[in-house]
Design a protein around this nucleic acid. Structure first.
Lengths: 188, 188
DNA sequence: AAGTCTAGTAAACTATCGTTCACTTTGTCA
DNA sequence: TGACAAAGTGAACGATAGTTTACTAGACTT
């Protein structure tokens, strides 16, 4: 597969975590006039891959992102949605980076909600957890990841998402430290 | 929660997709000498949040990433791993951005491998799929997302990960278009 | 064959970049 | 209280940034 100029810039970005300057692109593309670069950049700007503010280059999210092809209905053909749809996972999954962190899950107590042993969960420190939320909690001083439930007396307790484990009622106290906002699993 | 200088820069980055220049930081931090900025940047470089190459600033992955706190074993306390561990989801999940794309899954045929209705899957166009891989395939011209199996005669067929669906043997042809590399699910 | 696009070269320009040096203010700790 | 370090000011520096204009060679029309 041959690399065009955009691929070269993406490679540069991946390695350096920044866009190359015009003079750097001169070398990368083996050109000898900055004007050639200027024109190429203009084209990318029109295509929405790059933008400029205050005369400085910056990538757009289209630059980073993967094509989002559409929905696959098991048993049905692909419904390819709008042609130009792109997605950056970090942006999609993490709404408030400031108050979020990642944990690896060990154990099978949440398999029924599709959280498996080894999965990563993104947790947001949060004030208010609702019944049904999957929460990082401390129940009687012991940390755990479970589903928050409130019974009809509004008393909170924790439930597993695996029928083989019973619900946990706090003896003394139940502290909610965060809400699971997303799960992520990598195969292999 | 009060914003320190680093937070301000992160906000700027999130919005502009680039780091602010020294003069821009002057305004952001309300300083009046570039030297003050210079010193702050030096500190961030020592902390590994920012780096410089060819006199140009660039963030490191530590800059973007969420703290990876460790493993939570259901029923056991948090095992907080090494203090400084960071993770960027895009980098973690997508190995080859060039040949990857995203699809939203509709249907329950893969629930047993933890892929639910509405989840996003990251698919890599790939030459070689192994038995057991979850693949995007075309079986007798119909697109689907299933588990690839090979029987003892090395004949390929597709299986669901839901016992209520039978395996699919191709009448004429079976084309593998990609392998599912990761799943991602957002709550709410 | 003439005319028009496209993609590149070459050179000059200003603004801003990140750096450096010398000095001043503020805070901390003995 | 005095000393020292940390944090900020202010000004000057050369290097590089992105932009602009003018020109050229090849490819595509018609």
């Amino acid at each position: 597969m041959k690399l065009d100029h955009l691929d070269t810039v993406k490679r540069f970005y991946k390695f350096h975590k920044r866009l190359p300057s015009y003079s750097e692109m001169l070398k990368l593309f083996d050109f000898s006039s900055k004007n050639a670069i200027y024109r190429i950049i203009q084209k990318w700007i029109e295509e929405g891959l790059i933008k400029k503010d205050a005369r400085k280059l910056a990538p757009t999210s289209k630059f980073f992102s993967l094509p989002f092809l559409g929905i696959i209905k098991a048993g049905f053909p692909i419904l390819a949605e709008e042609d130009k749809n792109y997605l950056t996972l970090d942006e999609y999954l993490i709404e408030d980076p400031h108050s979020s962190f990642i944990l690896r899950v060990s154990g099978d107590s949440l398999i029924n909600v599709g959280i498996f042993d080894g999965d990563l969960v993104i947790i947001e420190r949060s004030q208010q957890a609702l019944s049904g939320d999957i929460v990082l909690a401390q129940i009687d001083r012991e940390w755990t990841l479970k589903i928050l439930r409130k019974d009809n007396q509004k008393k909170s307790y924790l439930a597993s998402a695996n029928p083989k484990y019973p619900p946990f009622f706090p003896r003394q106290e139940l502290q909610i430290h965060g809400i699971v906002k997303a799960v992520v699993r990598k195969f292999n």
